[in-house]
């Protein structure tokens, strides 16, 4: 499976509604040892938002402080990003991700650091 197969996929919750699209895949470095890098990176969960523009700005990260105008503008377009840990995902299909839970149960995405 490729990363870009998942990015941009529709997210369908347990009631069958499309609630968002996948805007990013969060990885955590706690897998089996893999070369000089140490532990391998495993998928921790999916970040989702209203639109997937194929662009990655990084404005939602806490340590990025500006510019104010662009941050506000993209917050407006993207809406509040939400997060689904791996355990909450039922299946990953071509262009579609199905969740085990309802959209309302997802927590708001925090920057990974």
């Amino acid at each position: 499976m490729r990363l870009t197969d998942v990015l941009g996929s529709e997210v369908i919750d347990s009631t069958g509604r499309k609630i968002a699209v996948v805007t990013d895949v969060r990885l955590v470095q706690d897998g089996p040892i893999l070369g000089e890098l140490g532990a391998a990176f495993r998928v921790h969960g999916l970040v989702m938002g209203r639109v997937s523009m194929g662009a990655h700005m990084g404005f939602e990260r806490r340590n990025v402080r500006g510019p104010w105008l662009l941050k506000r503008f993209f917050a407006l377009i993207q809406g509040t990003p939400h997060y689904a840990e791996w355990e909450l995902i039922r299946s990953i299909e071509p262009d579609r991700v199905r969740l085990r839970v309802r959209g309302e149960e997802l927590r708001v995405a925090e920057p990974p650091r």
């Binding site: 700005m57 990084g58 404005f59 340590n63 990025v64 402080r65 500006g66 510019p67 662009l70």
Partner: peptide, 12 residues
């Protein structure tokens, strides 16, 4: 110019 402005703000 947009990416320049964005990256110039990225502390990473």
């Amino acid at each position: 110019y947009f990416p320049i402005l964005v990256v110039a703000n990225d502390p990473d």
